[in-house]
Design a protein around this nucleic acid. Structure first.
Lengths: 173, 173
DNA sequence: GTCCGAATGGTCTGCTTCGGACGGTGTGAG
DNA sequence: CTCACACCGTCCGAAGCAGACCATTCGGAC
């Protein structure tokens, strides 16, 4: 039934969220994304509406549409969807994130290290503080995965702060 | 002369590389990208051919096209281009990179921490080793910016190794 | 009750990005 | 000469994306 449409990270995000919710409308997904993984992985809302449609067409979701009023679309997992999600979760990924930081790009091409460092430092210190506060608040109230992802974010923000602080002082980072 | 086409990161990469080379064909750019910043910032080659065209249309580059044979296009900076590049380099950026790591995504959604950690560890250790070796080899032979970018990469790979090692051992990272 | 505005829920447009397939051109080894 | 291979470039379709815009519902002010 389901053709082998390439599933992207966005696809799996949608599948995983629907699996967790049982049934969900695109709007629910939008909320869920904003509340949880929006911190470290943005998904533009146009995608959140488009993706379930594709997944339904490919047989990974079933769609039920309200006939009247808001004509919401409600999605549920199919067996194929559950299978695809499990496969994805089970297989440890070989992909790695790229750095792709605009500040580093400017540094690379000869931007002024001190000026960049100053700006980036305040940004990263700010985000680090947010993350640490969030971690305190939610500790114990959320999934282990959420906590681990947050700690990864914290670790990287700390690294950014360390790096830019060294650059600011003219040291070798 | 030049309309205010929004310039993307890719645009500035192209401008900066051409500024460094004096004159370059898209192919030269492709090579340059692969040799230098390809490590931490991928630019699909279709972009590398399309972007100079846009930049030339907007007045940031001048184009000279071979009449025969391979019909290569050669690009040079215009004053407008040099100006745009300088502006960009001078202004410290307020953007920040997102994490967007596939491994973290799986972790977030309940993938097996141990299995993920094992796979990611070997990947990141490998890349870390590459970077460190590269740093030794090129130290003193490349621009300060290149070196700093590389050190940023090394720092983040170390952080990844630290993080996943903790996850593997079941510790709080 | 009814009217207004905010929150909710969804669609559309017009880009840019991206990977990959594919098609020409030159060149040196045999 | 010619074939293989590196060099160089174009094209296409699918997906990503921002942001404007439209429609429904609901809760209070009057």
């Amino acid at each position: 039934m389901s053709s082998q449409h390439r599933l992207s990270a966005t696809s799996y995000i949608v599948l995983a969220l629907i699996e967790g919710a049982g049934e969900a409308t695109p709007y629910d997904l939008k909320q869920a994304v904003a509340a949880t993984l929006g911190n470290f992985w943005s998904v533009p809302h146009a995608q959140v509406y488009a993706e379930p449609e594709r997944l339904a067409a490919a047989g990974y979701l079933s769609e039920r549409r309200e006939k009247e009023g808001r004509r919401r679309r409600h999605y549920r997992m199919t067996e194929a969807g559950r299978l695809a999600l499990c496969d994805w979760l089970a297989e440890p990924t070989a992909e790695m994130a790229q750095l792709r930081d605009p500040g580093i790009l400017k540094l690379f091409f000869g931007g002024d290290p001190k000026a960049l460092a100053e700006a980036q430092l305040s940004l990263h210190r700010g985000r680090l503080a947010e993350y640490e506060q969030l971690a305190e608040q939610i500790e114990g109230h959320v999934s282990a995965g959420f906590m681990l992802a947050l700690r990864a974010g914290i670790g990287h923000e700390r690294e950014w702060v360390r790096f830019w602080a060294a650059v600011e002082k003219g040291e070798t980072p």
